[in-house]
Each structure stands twice: as structure tokens, then as C-alpha cells.
């Protein structure tokens, strides 16, 4: 009961970069590229790759990594291959550079159809650029698949069923669906594995499939944005901190408690 898995992976700017390196390009209304800070694979997508690898370790099968974008940094995109994924498909075209969630889902759906056979599509729960948590839900709707969101555990029960532990506010829900299905993955799943040397060598030998808008028969209408960015700016904080001092750190701790009492906060 080997399963074929497609993992949707987005290349994003590094969300852990220092706050001082983050700049807004006010004319383009987007985050400016941070010089010297390479892009990364969206963190939750690495969790999704890890989830796929665990399933493959357990029951066998194949893992195809799929990404949509205007351009891709090959060393970044090959990371899932070096972790153990089998193939990489890049839907890459200038027309795919700044797509909104709806258009992204449409392109992903076309690429999934072209890949053909699959039992599971795994996505990250959200991409750390716009934190949309929207593309996978749309992809599931377009393809008519069951959609199981925010998994911390995925179990393939037989050749046709999947059980997911879905993170809730105070625990998790156990959700069942038939395959093929789409599952979004969260960091609660656990750390993604590190690439092995053998994996890195194998990844080096693999060439990705690269598909353009034409290859995918994408009609420009499909890419029309539904959301128009009117403005993009840095939020300002209006608070002014009062630093509480003392003779030493312990004294400062004492004074903090007293100050909070005076302010009526405790």
C-alpha cells in the first residue's frame, strides 16, 4: 500500500532574518529583497516534507515536491530532495511572480493534474510571507479533495484512508478521510530531518522538471488577482516603556512588583 505524495513547497524570504534587515519597497508595495540573506523554504513546508518522509519510511511510495513561482533558487529548492524526496517539479514563469492565493491555488491545481497520480497532497499550514493559510484550502476545493487542516500527525491506515491529528486550541481532533486527500501540516509534527550526505549527493544528480504557464495551459484570466494591495507600511508602536531599576537585579525585581501594584495591575 505504497502511497504517492505531492508536497507543495513555497520559497519565501527568511522570516528569522533580523528585524533591521526587513525593508518595505513602498512603490512596489512588497517587502524588498534583503541583500545577502538567502531565501528559505517555508518552515511549515519543511514540516510537510518531513511528514511525507515519515509516511514513506512507514509504507513506501514516492514524494514529488511541487513549487510555483516567478523564479527559484535551486540550492534552496533542492533541500527537500536532499532530505529524501524523489522528484522536484517547478511551475516557473514570470507570470507566476506575484500571485495572490487564489491564482496560486489555480496554478498548483493545473500542475497537480499534470503530475497525475497521487494519494496525498501535503502543504504547510501557512506561508510565512503573507501568513495566508489559504492556498491549500483553495487547492482542495478546486481538485474536489477532502481537506484536513493543521496536522500534527498523519497516519495512512490502508490503501484508501488517512487519519490526521489536527491541532486544536486545547488538544487535537482525530479526523478521518478517504484518499486522495489534502492535508496541511504544522510545526507540532516535530523537527524536519537534516539532509544526509548521501541525500545531498543524490539531490545534486537530480534535475527538476520546469513547467511554464504555456506548458500548463494557463489562461491569463486565471492569474487575475482578486486582492489588490492599496498600501503596505510598517506598523508603529505607540508604547513607551518604563524601565524599573534597583540597586541590583533582585532589587529591580522587587521594585517591579511594587510598581505594578502602584499601577493597579496586580
Amino acid at each position: 500500500m505504497a502511497v504517492d505524495i505531492i508536497v507543495c513547497v513555497k520559497q519565501v524570504m527568511d522570516p528569522e532574518m533580523p528585524a533591521s534587515a526587513f525593508r518595505i519597497d513602498p512603490d512596489a508595495k512588497r517587502a524588498a529583497d534583503a541583500p545577502g540573506i538567502p531565501p528559505v523554504i517555508n518552515g511549515f513546508d519543511e514540516n510537510a516534507v518531513e511528514a511525507a518522509l515519515r509516511i514513506k519510511d512507514e509504507v513506501g511510495g514516492t514524494i514529488t515536491v511541487l513549487s510555483v513561482g516567478g523564479g527559484h533558487a535551486m540550492d534552496v529548492m533542492k533541500k527537500p530532495l536532499s532530505m529524501g524526496a524523489d522528484a522536484l517539479v517547478l511551475a516557473q514563469d514570470d507570470a507566476f511572480a506575484e500571485l495572490d492565493a487564489r491564482a496560486t491555488a489555480r496554478v498548483l491545481a493545473s500542475a497537480v493534474r499534470r503530475i497525475g497520480r497521487f494519494d496525498l497532497i501535503l502543504c504547510g499550514r501557512q506561508a510565512s510571507d503573507w501568513d495566508n493559510a489559504h492556498v491549500p484550502l483553495g487547492l482542495a476545493e478546486i481538485l474536489g479533495l477532502p481537506c484536513l487542516a493543521v496536522a500534527q500527525k498523519i497516519e495512512v491506515i490502508d490503501s484508501s484512508g488517512v487519519i490526521v491529528h489536527s491541532v486544536t486550541q486545547d488538544g487535537y481532533d482525530v479526523i478521518e478521510a478517504d484518499m486522495p486527500a489534502l492535508v496541511t501540516v504544522s510545526n507540532e509534527l516535530g523537527e524536519p530531518r537534516y539532509p544526509t550526505l548521501r541525500g545531498i549527493m543524490a539531490a545534486g544528480r537530480k534535475t527538476p522538471e520546469v513547467w511554464s504557464a504555456d506548458d500548463l495551459d494557463i489562461d491569463p484570466d486565471m492569474l487575475e488577482p482578486g486582492v489588490r494591495i492599496v498600501d503596505l507600511y510598517a506598523p508603529e508602536s505607540s508604547r513607551q516603556v518604563e524601565l524599573v531599576q534597583g540597586e541590583d537585579e533582585a532589587d529591580a525585581g522587587r521594585n517591579l512588583a511594587i510598581r505594578l501594584r502602584e499601577a493597579g495591575l496586580i
Partner: peptide
């Protein structure tokens, strides 16, 4: 600190015990 109203710059290992003790006395 930029979004805080009150703060102490210090190691919690030193700040916290005295803070807790004082809170206990006050409340």
C-alpha cells in the same frame, strides 16, 4: 521592550525570585 509598559533589564534567575516574593507579600 518596544511594546512594553514596564520592564526590567536583567537575568530572570536574579530578578524573578525577589519579584515573586514581593508579589506574594503584596497580594
Amino acid at each position: 521592550f518596544q511594546e512594553a509598559s514596564y520592564g526590567v533589564v536583567g537575568d530572570w534567575r536574579k530578578v524573578l525570585p525577589a519579584f515573586i516574593e514581593t508579589v506574594r507579600e503584596l497580594v
